[in-house]
Simulated scan of single mutants.
Amino acid sequence: MASQGIFPDVITFNILVDALCKDGRVGQAESVVQIMIQRGIEPNTITYNSLMDGHCLQGEMDKAKQVFDLMVSKGFMVDVQSCNILINGYCKQKKISKAYKILKEMPLRGLVPNTVTYNTLIDVILDALCSNQQLSKAIELLREMKDKKLELNIVVYTIIIEGLCKAGKLDFAVEVFSYLSSNRVQPNVRSYTVMIHAFCKGGLLSEAEKLLREMGEKGCPPDGCTYDIIIRGLLNNNNASRAMRLIQEMVESRFSADASTMELIFGLLCKDVVDPALLPLLKRP
């Protein structure tokens, strides 16, 4: 390019830096940045975000944080994307406290967290609920999202509901689930299935079946996983006749009994716990 009198600008260099980082060649990307500086081309936020993301992809969070700190030292360079990259990197390594710290520092830098920021944190925090007892932080983040009028879609709510269920807080999960309809958020198959599983686990089979019926009424038909979960729940609670009815319904809906369901039913058949009439249903195409 130089031999033809064409010299790369910051945009050209940024494309190269980003490509190298995504390819795992962060060291080469850093060398390109040094060439930029030597040529009097000042790296910008996009340049450093690419470098930081490259380190995060390699699991090099200390180096990513060094890049972040360099950006901070340059005053205006850190943006919401910079924070999201670092938060995501920390979350992937389950370093929740460090990710949360970056989030809390964002307003001090004049930055407003967006939906990506919160979704990243909520997902990982809930994933670590049982061992780290961070449910309160997840709820706090959800409230912050609402206060900032950020998009709260069914994916976010399902993450919260599942976290509550895993933490044994079924009453709160029911409260959040009930809240959806009043806020015009339509539950999806995943959110219904999470609640049905929680009801079955808690022995609340009537509630589980009620939700199963609601799915059809609301135009959100259950899938094979939903049927599998509620059939298991019924069989484990000695409700073979109701389980048989749902197996019939599952087959008529063109879902096949999956391996886990079949294993459970065959096991119970061997123990004469359930009616052998189940067997022909399982063999139907």
Rank of each mutant, 00 (worst) to 15 (best):
E151V: 13
I139W: 02
E151T: 13
A128H: 01
L135H: 00
F7W: 06
L278S: 11
I11P: 00
L70H: 14
E105P: 07
K95Y: 03
V174K: 15
D223P: 04
N153Y: 04
R245I: 15
S260Y: 13
N49V: 10
R232C: 06
I15F: 07
M250P: 00
D272K: 15
A128C: 08
V33P: 05
T120M: 05
Y48L: 12
E105H: 08
N239F: 13
K63T: 11
N88K: 08
Q134E: 13
T12V: 11
I35C: 06
A2L: 13
G27V: 06
F199I: 05
N119D: 08
A240G: 15
R25A: 01
A257Q: 09
D69C: 11
G203W: 13
V112C: 10
K148M: 13
Q93S: 13
K94L: 10
T193W: 12
F76A: 12
S31L: 12
R232Y: 07
R245L: 15
G216M: 00
Q34C: 08
M77P: 12
K218C: 08
P222G: 01
C83E: 12
M145E: 02
L103Q: 04
S73V: 11
N236G: 14
S260H: 10
D171E: 14
Q248K: 15
S191C: 14
V67F: 04
N236D: 10
Q34I: 07
E151S: 09
V194F: 11
K271P: 09
C165V: 06
K101G: 00
Q58C: 10
R25W: 00
T45K: 08
Q81D: 12
K210G: 07
E207M: 08
D69T: 05
P221N: 03
K166M: 00
K201R: 15
V273Y: 13
E207L: 02
L152I: 15
R39G: 02
D272E: 15
S73K: 14
T12C: 05
D258L: 12
V33K: 03
K146W: 07
E60N: 15
K218R: 11
L180S: 03
V189L: 07
C83F: 11
I154L: 05
I96D: 00
T117L: 09
E209F: 09
K94D: 10
F199G: 11
L141E: 06
P43W: 06
L180I: 07
R25L: 14
V251K: 15
G40C: 02
